[in-house]
Simulated scan of single mutants.
Amino acid sequence: MLIAQISDLHIQQGGKDSELIQAAPHLAACIRALNRLAPRPDLVVVTGDLTEHGQKEEYLLLKPILEQLDIPFVLIPGNHDSPATLREVFHDHDYLQSPSPFIQYAIDTWPLRIVGLDTTVPMRSEGALCAQRLSWLADTLAQAPDTPTVVLMHHPPFETGIKLMDELGLLTGRDAFADIIAPYRNIERILCGHLHRTMLCRVGPTVASTCPGTAHQIALDLDPAAQALHFNFEPPGYQLHWQGAQGLVTHHVAIGDFSGPYPF
């Protein structure tokens, strides 16, 4: 199976930095790049921060752009999203619809089981996994302990070294999350967003990774005394997760027009 991951789309209608960031054209360029891939991915996973303000108008702008994908896609919310509005606009995505306040699901129709875990806190930037969500995760993993599984979540379950982003990270439930996944050797990867950069970290028996943003990136700053957070326009990107003989192999791909390819 081949999975493409995109993240942190931040589609917006007006507001701070909207003219500078140009999120919609960047996303459209990403989708064109994905549609050109050969072999084509089986699935695209979008790991949160679909919009900037969680407004219905932003989701209505986002939906037709995403629907230009020639590939099935699944969504999870990020801290900039409104779960209720996401469900309303993407009403045709059955896996999003449940009476729970959290957008969580397990999809068993692919060679890899897809488990979506909601880390968002209403009106807050940091993430959390409360007892209810952790219980759901424990029950869901126990249902298929031998099936190769990918877990999707917006906030990564590890510190990154970018101080000001770590202060807005998964602040509650991170250790309990690691305890829950500890017995499972079938979790191929934990795919996250939020950091707008590619990062990798071992978490329990598996690897958690973050994906670059499609519109802008968080500036790399590992200064423990940093006082301000910045973004920049390093090349936007996506990731391809290929299921090989030893498990998932991840490729970071920059979006843009580059010279080549040239034969060796």
Rank of each mutant, 00 (worst) to 15 (best):
A28H: 11
H251A: 04
V45E: 07
Y238E: 00
L112G: 05
P235A: 02
E159N: 15
R174G: 00
F231S: 06
R40G: 11
G127P: 05
G161V: 03
G260T: 01
P83H: 13
G247M: 03
A144E: 10
G204Q: 07
H53V: 01
P72K: 06
A144W: 10
T85V: 14
A24R: 15
Q55M: 05
Q13M: 12
L66N: 08
G244L: 10
I71R: 05
Q227G: 09
P64D: 15
A38Q: 15
E19I: 11
P224Y: 01
P148Q: 14
L60V: 09
W136N: 08
V203Q: 00
F231C: 07
A245S: 13
K56Y: 02
L191Q: 07
L69M: 11
P25F: 10
G204K: 05
H93W: 02
Q143V: 06
V44F: 05
E57S: 14
L2A: 12
R87P: 05
P183S: 10
E234G: 08
N35Q: 06
L69N: 09
D8W: 09
L134A: 09
L86F: 13
L9W: 10
L134V: 06
W110T: 03
D108S: 13
E67D: 15
K63R: 15
R124Q: 15
T85N: 11
D166P: 08
L129P: 10
T172M: 12
P212M: 00
T47A: 02
G260I: 01
Q12R: 15
C211Q: 07
H91C: 06
L129A: 12
I6C: 09
D92C: 05
C201L: 02
V150F: 04
L168C: 12
L50K: 07
T210Y: 15
A33E: 14
S125K: 13
V207D: 15
R197C: 01
V253Q: 04
R36T: 13
M1T: 13
L2T: 14
P157A: 11
D175W: 01
L112N: 04
L60T: 10
G161E: 07
I6S: 09
G173L: 04
R36I: 08
G213T: 00
H155P: 08
H216S: 02
A226W: 06
W242P: 00
Y59E: 04
M1H: 15
Y95T: 01
A84G: 09
E188N: 01
Q227S: 12
T198S: 04
A225M: 08
L9G: 01
W242K: 08
H251T: 03
D118N: 01
A28T: 09
P156V: 12
I107W: 11
I76T: 03
G173E: 03
T160W: 14
R202S: 06
T120G: 10
T160N: 13
E159I: 13
I255F: 06
F258T: 11
Y238D: 00
E52W: 07
W110Q: 08
V151W: 14
I11N: 09
Y59C: 07
P41L: 07
V45P: 08
I107A: 07
F73M: 05
D94A: 14
A138K: 15
H155Q: 13
D223C: 12
Q97D: 00
L168P: 04
